[in-house]
Amino acid sequence: MRLGNLERSVMEALWNHPEGMFAQDLADGLASRPAVTTVLTVLVRLSRKGLVSRERQGRAHLYRAGADRDTFVAETMRAALDEAGDVEAAVSRFVGTVSPEVAAALREALDGRDEAAR
Rank of each mutant, 00 (worst) to 15 (best):
F94Q: 02
L110E: 01
A103E: 11
A105N: 04
L62Y: 00
R59T: 06
A67V: 15
R107Y: 09
L106K: 01
G4D: 14
S32P: 00
L51A: 05
D86T: 00
G4H: 08
E88A: 13
T41A: 09
L40R: 15
L6D: 09
D86Q: 08
D28W: 11
H61E: 03
W15M: 04
G20K: 03
T97K: 15
V91F: 06
V52T: 08
L40K: 15
V95P: 04
R56Q: 14
A74Q: 12
F94R: 00
G112M: 10
T38Y: 06
P34M: 06
G50Q: 03
F72H: 10
W15Y: 00
E75P: 12
F72G: 01
A116Q: 13
D86A: 05
M77Y: 08
A103H: 09
A104I: 09
V91W: 02
G20R: 01
V91G: 02
A65F: 04
G50V: 02
P34D: 03
K49Q: 09
F22P: 04
G85S: 10
P100K: 06
V10F: 05
E75V: 07
V39P: 01
R118S: 13
G96T: 00
G66V: 07
G96I: 03
V91Y: 00
Q57R: 14
A74S: 11
V91T: 01
A65I: 02
A65L: 04
G96M: 02
N16E: 15
A23L: 07
E101Q: 15
G96Q: 01
L51Y: 07
R56I: 11
P100A: 12
M77K: 07
T71S: 12
E55D: 08
T76Q: 15
